[in-house]
Nucleic acid binder design. Sequence first.
RNA 1: GGCGAGUUGGCGGAGUGGUUACGCAGCGGAUUGCAAAUCCGUGUACAGGAGUUCGAUUCUCCUACUCGCCUCCA
Length: 461
Amino acid sequence: MTTIRLHNTRTRKREDFVPISADDVRMYVCGPTVYDRAHIGNARPVIVFDLLYRLLRHVYGPGHVSYVRNFTDVDDKINARAAESGRSIGEITAETTRWFLQDMAAVGALEPSLKGAEHDRAMPRATAYIDEMIAMIQDLVSKDHAYAAEGHVLFRVRSYAEYGALSGRSVDDMIAGARVEVAPYKEDPMDFVLWKPSDAETPGWDSPWGRGRPGWHIECSAMAEALLGDTFDIHGGGNDLTFPHHENEIAQSKCAGHGFANVWMHNEMLQVEGRKMSKSLGNFFTLNDLLEQGVPGEVIRFVFLSTHYRKPMDWTDKKRDEAERVLRKWYTQVAGDETTAPPAEAVDLLADDLNSHGVLTLCHRLSGENDVAGLRGALVLLGLLDDKIPDWAVEQAYDLTDVEAFLSDARVTAMETKDFAEVDRIKTALTALGIEVQMSKDGVKLKAPPGFDGTGLEGVL
RNA sequence: GGCGAGUUGGCGGAGUGGUUACGCAGCGGAUUGCAAAUCCGUGUACAGGAGUUCGAUUCUCCUACUCGCCUCCA
């Protein structure tokens, strides 16, 4: 069996991956807070961990992998969005969740699944696990790892000696550098909220500490335990979550007596044209914006896969264009073929800490060798190809036979008279329309650009 | 200030203790009426310094620079 090697943030080393149970390999990835469209950066962890999910399914079998990704549907940003828009929270979270799934499906991400369970249980909504969160908080309070104060419940960070191990910082350093306004009810500035009170307008649930809502960190700890058990294999997310989110998850779960995750994986951030994406720089856009502009999801995925997940990735128009050209070529090449197992070399590359770029390089080679089956298998493994070639890459059906004949006739005449003026005129005009003109001994061949509808041809004939 | 990741040819981007991939662009050639497409060929780049070593781009340390995180942003 292929040995997968993964970089573990916890140990800062690339390690052989040994699942707790090869019968059910379990992975948890932090999902979105559903208050708005997913921006392009949100797609990176989704694509990265989708790739890992596909690799795990390939190595251990599709029925032997459990992958959970949550939706955070209780959050102050959602509350704020509801207040400013006048819409209900339920409406906003339902719509945003739908958008998220559509956008991620467009970039080839499989939906998570849980071995032996209903499919949608693998994508838990935080609000469906409030009872589990309350139970976990009660447990932490009973073990003295948490305390109630003024309607809040706070995690006592000093009670967990290992706090900071994942992100490599000491509690004292954190306090020294913290720009935190310390709430008066906190025993220690580093303590974080497990539960907070809700007023009448804010969503809330009854609890031993009064009506309130959970803090963000406890959600993932509770849902991971409920769905994957108290010890599982891989926990993933963007590297901006390493601290404090993942550090806090570890503290909560470990103190509750769970083994929690063995391997921690973090993807690097995404930049746009060399700069951090932000609304103030005007380079902020959503996945949906790109899709609406006609950028195919496969092209977006290709660009993401062309940089290793642990390196910063830059989204540029140049990369987008190049990705489209390459994919169009490959898709044309593998069209009509049957999908077979991916080349072992492709699997090995991916197994080496997800060397997706290496697999793309291999695809270039397979394409050059015209190894259609290998190329197709590799593309399927990468999630760049399903059963059929995407519509945008299918050779355009626009019939140019008449034009080909017309040009061919003119060319035959020109060959005799040695006067190529008319042929050149036609060629130039066709090229201006975006049509690719190929002339050889065998005759004339024309290729219409994507979406060509014949407009402008009357001026040529 | 602390912590983390990164720095490879014109651009993108892999990888390796000892001849550095691959893609794009460029250049040369084949082919073509000319092109396009295709094919062939072509590039002495590994941030700087010190150390370990017979030998380092690859390991260690230091410096510089870039990016991210430091209470809820993937």
